[in-house]
């Protein structure tokens, strides 16, 4: 940290992402941005705020609503050695471009026997909580993590968003960067205060593949990611008053997955709650439980608890939507269950 900075430099997650992209663009002329409304608008969820003003339309390119076309173009530019940062506005739109993502972006390096690199970032907004319903509220990180060949990065706060974005852009692999709308710190959406936090002004990186201990504790481990980290921190603070010490593992990336940090924490607490805003079955919560089970199930003093969206599409009405999301109340209840 430089002398001119103070810990009071508080910015949103959205701004932190944009700052990272801007710093990388200044440092490397091969970095450019494209996507829908990333230009003058600055990204619907603020991920490219102010970049257009600085870099212009040549390097911050508004695309047609043509996800197969421009994600494919990102791949083509990346195989030619550029470092595109491409935004898919909502991750839910993966359906119109998944062939480029899964069959091309993710497979080219492997198919080519390592001969062709695809240094590309594909960022997308995820998450529910504001009544955008079934086609604009999913997380889907488990889907991308299931398919080999992509790194999958999921930050939970402004600092990590900036550092992980820098790492993602410098990575020689395709990186899916999934940011939660509710953690962006947007003025037009209910937000957790943790979405605005101190972030150093200069460039820095957070390594991809290292989970963070978001909070140390001794009674229960919550393994989670994205907005659920913020919720879990709120819950942990609350439960501290009740004498429950919660440790929170913020995975920060699903691919690569930091198994060791998970195992170390579970070894310490002996109780595991996995919280995920993605669908429950065949996903992250099952994967974490399996890792523990495969390694040493005897480290668990209680059966694993999983809290995730119960295999239904995200409903619209607030009462319905909050009926299925991993809310603070549900997280707290699950922790208390484990402590019972």
């Amino acid at each position: 940290m430089t002398a001119t900075e103070t810990p009071t430099r508080r910015i949103t997650t959205a701004k932190a992402m944009a700052e990272a992209i801007g710093l990388e663009m200044r440092a490397d002329p091969d970095v450019f941005v494209m996507g829908e409304d990333v230009g003058a608008y600055g990204g619907i969820f603020g991920s490219t705020t102010d970049l257009f003003a600085e870099f212009g339309a040549d390097r911050v390119i508004d695309t047609p609503i043509s996800e197969t076309g421009f994600i494919g173009a990102g791949i083509g530019a990346a195989v030619e050695g550029l470092r595109p940062v491409v935004e898919l506005m909502f991750v839910d739109f993966y359906g119109v471009c998944m062939d480029q993502i899964s069959n091309h972006m993710a497979k080219i390096h492997y198919e080519s026997g390592g001969a062709v690199k695809v240094p590309m970032v594909l960022m997308a907004a995820t998450g529910a909580g504001y009544s955008d319903a079934a086609q604009h509220s999913q997380c889907l990180w488990g889907t991308f993590a299931h398919l080999p060949g992509m790194k999958v990065v999921v930050p939970s706060n402004p600092y990590d968003a900036k550092g992980l974005m820098a790492s993602a852009i410098r990575d020689d692999n395709p990186v899916i960067f999934l940011f939660h709308k509710g953690a962006q710190g947007l003025v037009w959406m209910e937000k957790n205060p943790r979405s605005i936090a101190h972030v150093p002004e200069e460039a820095f990186t957070v390594p991809i593949g290292e989970a963070a201990i978001a909070r140390e504790g001794s009674d229960v481990t919550i393994v989670t990611l994205s907005l659920s980290v913020q919720h879990s921190l709120d819950v942990a603070e609350e439960l501290e008053g009740e004498g429950i010490s919660v440790e929170i593992v913020d995975l920060r990336s699903l691919v690569p997955l930091d198994r060791q940090t998970v195992l170390d924490s579970v070894a310490k607490t002996g109780k595991l709650l996995v919280v995920d805003e993605d669908y429950k079955s065949f996903g992250l919560t099952g994967e974490i439980a399996a890792i523990v089970a495969e390694t040493d199930p005897t480290m668990l003093k209680k059966p694993v608890k999983r809290l995730a969206v119960p295999d239904v599409p995200i409903p619209y009405a607030r009462s319905l939507e909050y009926g299925i999301l991993p809310t603070r109340e549900r997280i707290a209840a699950a922790v208390k269950d484990l402590m019972a």
């Binding site: 173009a73 791949i75 083509g76 550029l82 062709v116």
Partner: peptide
């Protein structure tokens, strides 16, 4: 700078990206 795709038409967007890189 030669590549193939077994998925019909999906090499087209990639070629556009290669052309974009050449132009840039």
């Amino acid at each position: 700078h030669f590549s193939c795709s077994g998925i019909i038409a999906q090499g087209y967007p990639v070629a556009c990206g290669q052309a974009l890189a050449m132009k840039r």
